[in-house]
Design a binder for these strands. Structure first.
Lengths: 263, 263
DNA sequence: CTTGACTCTCCCCTTAGGGTATGCTCTAAA
DNA sequence: TTTAGAGCATACCCTAAGGGGAGAGTCAAG
């Protein structure tokens, strides 16, 4: 019979771990002295200890190990574990790729985050602008018309409002855009205003600070980022206006989010 | 000014996380109402929130993020993180390879564990055996001679005792073996008994249960395992006798550990 | 008989927040 | 104006797999 310290050295499990495994019902000492509480192990328990250690090194949880040792479906547990590990590996690959981009480009100007956008009901309106700055008139007009059509319809709080550029390419004039804003439910439509439900989406998101003249950089950045890191673009980018002329005087405080649907 | 729930929705960080980040000093709300305790954020803090979220998605810890945001050495942090991720990836690859082996071979007879063996002082003796079973006489003889030479020399507790087979190949007769046993310090040597310090080593370990006739299987298994999973053999295998004829009558209870130094 | 090495139990600590309970605050409808 | 419901606050406990340490009991050797 081996005291815990001896068994620990033979099994290369720490004393702490052995006591923990006993508490979890995974490896019970053969006998426990009733008076002193000392644990005593047998050499044949080294087999179980080795099993436990081997499984832990494969990153199985205590519960998984217990399932396996109690005669559970070993193949199923390992197959599941293999899938887990595979997806962990893929996540790590994405991170490494991103970090490599950061280290190479040193372009810390934009931080890209991945977000899950829930589905929402929006009203939307499409038009062709002569120049970008005309959007500043078009967007409020849409809001007004929608409220006129549906006086009791409320926007979500916080608001979710964005523009998409329907032309595949960059244009200086005759720009087709669609403006959408999330509302609580559908309502009456008109020539200009339509309703639809936009599905939930996974997007890459970056924030652009400052004037709209430089927003092209942000688009270029996020497109390259998606390309470099294995994301597949799955829709038109959404431009969300957070701060702008309507609430901030200084152009430097303007804030725009660009969301690029992926996968 | 945004209440925490609004800011949460805009930043896609949970309210819990925002409060947590405040506690950690990572993202402090612009103002906190003195009477109600309500937190108020500014839209421009969305930038910091995005940064934090991006960094968290790269698996940086809160402290690492704080270091980066406080103007720490960004490159160093990311380079370190990249190394971390790379080694995580390698670990996962090893695990996947092992699990694949298990799923394919369904050979759950042996569990392989990785152990770090600390360095130790041993006495050792080499000889050529006519047949394997002669070891049962040779080993006790070594112990006796060593004790005769060094009456006060004590073995370690628990004991660490092993044989190495010096012939590169399997032989039925004229087997060169070396027997070693860990002791507390060096002592007087003789023709047979020498002392040396064996360095710390990383070993693959399996337990063989039962008679020695089948131990060849165990060797074959561990060698193939090392090969399959990218370990490089770095020395002679050590055969450690845990239970045997000296303390167990039934052959089925005999227990032998095989340690294969790697890397 | 004493000393030092082991062992016991009990409690707190780690990460990055999640869940829940209880109570206060705000807002919009009645 | 009141009130219901949503939003916010703090505070406590929880996670996985042990690690660290305190305080007290046990064991073996000198």
């Amino acid at each position: 019979m081996l005291k815990i310290g001896e068994f620990s050295k033979l099994s290369h499990l720490t004393v702490k771990a052995l006591r923990f495994y006993e508490k979890k019902g995974l490896l019970i000492p053969k006998t426990v002295d009733e008076w002193t509480g000392y644990r005593f192990y047998e050499t044949r328990q080294l087999e179980d200890a080795a099993k436990i250690k081997a499984y832990r090194q494969l990153d199985l949880s205590i519960d998984e190990i217990k399932a396996v040792m109690d005669g559970g479906d070993i193949k199923a547990v390992f197959a599941k574990k293999a899938r887990d590990l595979q997806s962990q590996r893929e996540e790590i690959d994405v991170r490494l790729s991103i970090i490599k981009t950061i280290l190479e480009d040193e372009s810390m100007k934009y931080q890209v985050t991945v977000k899950e956008i829930p589905s929402a009901i929006v009203y939307y309106a499409e038009t062709t602008l002569e120049k970008y700055s005309d959007a500043m008139e078009f967007i409020p007009k849409c809001g007004e018309e929608c409220r006129k059509l549906n006086p009791n319809l409320k926007c979500t709080n916080p608001p979710y409002e964005f523009c998409e550029y329907l032309d595949g390419e960059y244009k200086e004039t005759n720009i087709r855009i669609r403006h959408s804003e999330a509302v609580e439910k559908t309502g009456k439509e008109s020539e200009l205003i339509k309703f639809r439900e936009i599905p939930a989406a996974k997007v890459l998101s970056i924030l652009h600070k400052g004037a709209y003249e430089q927003i092209g950089e942000a688009y270029a950045f996020i497109m390259k980022y998606a390309d470099d890191n294995g994301y597949k673009v799955a829709g038109l980018a959404r431009e969300c206006y957070i701060d702008g002329i309507w609430n901030k005087q200084s152009v430097e405080d303007w804030l725009t989010e660009i969301q690029l649907p992926v996968e």
